[in-house]
Nucleic acid binder design. Structure first.
Lengths: 202, 202
DNA sequence: ACAATTCTATACCAATCGGTATTGAATAAT
DNA sequence: ATTATTCAATACCGATTGGTATAGAATTGT
C-alpha cells in the first residue's frame, strides 16, 4: 500500500558501500551520498533511518561480498586455510575495480569522538573475524593438523595482522602481484604437524 | 622583537600530534586543537599557518619519535634488522601510554576528497619508509646476509605489511604481548643465507 | 470516486566546519 | 617615552555538517 519507492534500496546500499569504502564514514557526507545514490535526503532517511544505519547496512553487504573468508573455511588443512585467507585478501584488495583498502579497517580507524560507535563496531567485527580464524585453527590442532606447540590464538592474530597489513598496503596503491608475493612470504614457515607430509619445519 | 609568544610551539605540536594520532586528520577539529593546546585560533594560525601545516609538523615529530625504525638500521644482520623493526613496532604500539595505532596510517587512510593531499602525503611517507627497509636489505644481500633467491623488495613489502598490520591490531586494542608474539611468528618466515649459522631454512 | 498510505521534493533547521578581520596588550629597539 | 612590531582575544565569516518539517505526488484498498 502507499506510493512505491522509486529506487532500489539494495543498489543504493551497494553504492553507499563503495562511497564509504573509499572515503570512510566521516569522510562521506550526506551530500556525497544523496548525489551518488541519486535520491534526496528525506528519501534516504525514510529508507535507512540515519547515516550510521546506512553505514552498518553497507558494512553488512561488504562483509558478505568479501566472501573469501567464508570460502577459505572449506580448505582441508590449516595451511590450505591460511593460504586461502591470505591469497583471498591479496586478490580482493589487488582488484583495481574496487576502492583501495578495506572498509572494515578504513571505515573508521581513527575518528572524532562523535563517530566512536562506528569505530567500535568495526573493532568488534574485526575481532569476530579473528575469532573465526582462531576457531578453525583450534579444530586443526585437534585434527593433528598443527603441531602441539602451535598456538591457534597467536596464529589467528598473525594471520589477521597480515591481512590488515595487506589492506593498508592496498590503500597505498600496491598491485595485486605485490600483495600476492607478500602473502606467499607470510606463509613460508607455516607450522606443520610432525606427522604431516612435506619438509617445512616449524 | 615584538611581543613574545606565550606558548611553547614545540609542546603545542606534541599535543597536536597526540590529538591527530587518536582522532585522525579529519576527525580533529580546530576546536579540539585550540582546547587541547590552550591557545586561540588566531594564535594557532599565526604560529602554524593552517590545520594542514600543523598536521605535517605533527607528522614530522611523530616520525622522529618513532625512532625504532632508524635505530633498527644499526643491527648487524638482515635478520637482526627485521627483528628490531617488528619488535620495535610491537613495543611502540603496545605502549598504552600512547594513542592506539599509527599516525602514519590512521591519520588519513580513507578520507573526503578535500583531505586527499594529506592522504597522499601519508602514502608517500609510508613508501619512503618501505624504501629505506628495501635499501637495507639490498645491502644485506650484497653482504651475503640473505640468500641469492631472496628479493629485498618483496621482503621489505612483507615487513611493511606486518608493521601496518600490527598498527591496525593495536588500534583495535591489542596488548603488547599479543603484538610481540605476532612479531615473533612473522620472523619465523625470515630467510637465512646459505652460509649463515642456524638450521632455520628458507 | 475516495480515503488511507507512503513516497519525493523543496526548503529549512541549529550546529559546526576551517579560517579571519579587528582591536588592544605586551614587548624590543630607539 | 615613543614607535614599530608581534602577539592574544573577541567576534565574526561563508560554507557545510547531519537531520527534518511541510507539502504535494503516486499508489493501494475500498
Amino acid at each position: 500500500m502507499g506510493r512505491p519507492r522509486e529506487f532500489d534500496t539494495e543498489e543504493a546500499i551497494a553504492r553507499a558501500m563503495r562511497l564509504f569504502w573509499r572515503q570512510g564514514y566521516e569522510g562521506t557526507s550526506l551530500t556525497d551520498l544523496t548525489e551518488e545514490l541519486g535520491i534526496t535526503r528525506p528519501s534516504l532517511y525514510a529508507a535507512f533511518g540515519s547515516k550510521e544505519a546506512l553505514f552498518l547496512k553497507a558494512l553488512d553487504l561488504y562483509e558478505a561480498r568479501a566472501g573469501y573468508r567464508e570460502a577459505a573455511l572449506a580448505a582441508p588443512t590449516a595451511r590450505a586455510y591460511a593460504q586461502a585467507l591470505l591469497e583471498g585478501a591479496a586478490d580482493l584488495h589487488g582488484d583495481k575495480s574496487n576502492p583501495p583498502g578495506c572498509l572494515g579497517v578504513q571505515g573508521a580507524l581513527a575518528c572524532a569522538p562523535e563517530s566512536d560507535s562506528i569505530r567500535k563496531e568495526l573493532i568488534l567485527r574485526r575481532r569476530i573475524g579473528e575469532s573465526i580464524i582462531r576457531d578453525r585453527l583450534k579444530r586443526a590442532k585437534v585434527d593433528g593438523d598443527l603441531p602441539a606447540d602451535a598456538d591457534p590464538a597467536d596464529l589467528a592474530r598473525y594471520l589477521s595482522i597480515v591481512i590488515y597489513g595487506i589492506t593498508v598496503q592496498a590503500a597505498g596503491g600496491a598491485t595485486r602481484k605485490e600483495l600476492q608475493s607478500a602473502a606467499k612470504l607470510a606463509l613460508k614457515n607455516w607450522p606443520q604437524a610432525a606427522n604431516a607430509k612435506g619438509r617445512r619445519g616449524a
